[in-house]
């Protein structure tokens, strides 16, 4: 029987039989369903995914008329990361005029709210210039990145130093202190950039430092939304569930640690988020079929439980895309098509 050309989660090429792909799809959706306690993909969905992997085309796309919004995060840092020497304005123009971006984002290379606050006086005029030379909605974005608030980078004791010493309450207290600093910085930067004309503010890679990171962002969103009711706020996540680095934090009475995308979005919506971006981690030891079925299962449940647009993260190491510097088009296009047609999301 003819083998199906696909990849593993680390990008390496692998040829699997149809039954092996089918088995991986079943196991991937089962894993997501068991973890998040959500329904697995239906037989119909699995069959469509199997057809997607059987398709010999190198890249695939959605049917005409089913295209979705392409919202790019961290846009002005990505070209520089691969050593292409372009300015922020040029990056944005490339996204607009060559890559078909529907929304774009400007950010500083450090890409965290804490360092960004010190250079607002540089960022604001550049952002205003960018608004004058581009048409799509333009966000300003960065990561909450609570890790930057611990010593030696910040004022707070490091919970990762305290926990191994058994100082649990001290580790929790320092995370609560970090939240206050992070909220202040996110509100400060968000306010200034919105007043400079930003169409929206993006909180990217939210909860990377765990439940405290998530709580800080929810609180910042709440404050900004009260201050600027028309502000568009995008929240992109960092992983499929909220790591319990603190373990006892709550928002609106809900414990944050351990929440999966379909529950994360409920709180994001309550806080005032306008667009939510779930992130599902790619397992490098499993095939793209396994990872895609799993990512689509989490995302579909998130979409079904949400009243706000869902723009899933589909990029290196998330959403079923392999962990490679330049994600292969065969994998990215398959994940994108599956996310749109089966996950029913609103944007990528």
């Amino acid at each position: 029987m003819q083998k199906i050309y696909t990849r593993m989660g680390d990008g390496s090429v692998v040829e699997l039989s149809e039954s092996e792909v089918r088995q991986d799809l079943e196991e991937g959706t089962k894993d997501a369903a068991e973890r998040a306690k959500i329904p697995p993909l239906s037989e119909d969905d699995l069959q469509r995914l199997l057809e997607l992997y059987k398709c010999p085309d190198k890249s695939v796309g959605v049917e005409k008329g089913k295209e979705v919004i392409l919202s790019y995060d961290s846009g002005t840092t990505k070209f520089n990361r691969v050593n292409v020497s372009v300015s922020k304005l040029q990056s944005l123009q490339i996204y607009e005029r060559m890559l078909g971006a529907d929304t774009m984002e400007m950010g500083h290379m450090d890409y965290s709210y804490k360092p960004a606050k010190n250079i607002m006086w540089i960022e604001q005029p550049v952002f205003e210039q960018a608004l004058l030379v581009t048409i799509p909605p333009l966000f300003y974005g960065a990561m909450p990145n609570l890790g930057l608030y611990t010593q030696p980078d910040g004022p707070c004791l490091n919970p990762m130093e305290l926990l191994p010493q058994g100082k649990i309450s001290e580790a929790r207290a320092t995370q609560e202190e970090m939240i206050e600093h992070a909220v202040r910085d996110m509100v400060y930067v968000g306010s200034l950039m919105y007043e400079s004309g930003a169409d929206g503010i993006n909180f990217d890679t939210t909860a990377a430092a765990g439940d405290a990171d998530f709580l800080a962002t929810l609180r910042a969103v709440e404050i900004l939304k009260k201050k600027y009711p028309q502000m568009c706020i995008e929240m992109g996540m960092s992983g499929e569930f909220i790591l319990g680095m603190h373990g006892e934090l709550t928002y609106d009475g809900v414990k944050l640690a351990g929440l999966y995308p379909h529950k994360q979005v409920e709180l994001a919506e309550k806080a005032g988020v306008t667009i939510f971006g779930p992130a599902v981690n790619t397992n490098t030891n499993e095939s793209c079929a396994w990872n895609t079925a799993r990512a689509v299962t989490f995302t579909k449940a998130c979409v079904e439980n949400s009243n706000i647009p869902i723009h899933a993260n589909v990029g290196m190491g998330v959403g079923g895309v392999p962990v490679t510097e330049t994600p292969p088009v065969d994998s990215v296009s398959r994940v994108s098509k599956a996310m749109v047609e089966i996950g029913r999301l609103d944007g990528l």
Binding site: L163, I168, G210, L243, G244, G247, A257
Partner: peptide
Amino acid sequence: GRGELFLPELILSAE
């Protein structure tokens, strides 16, 4: 790994 138990508990279990 499943988000059903958190870091403080993990550390205490490891101890």
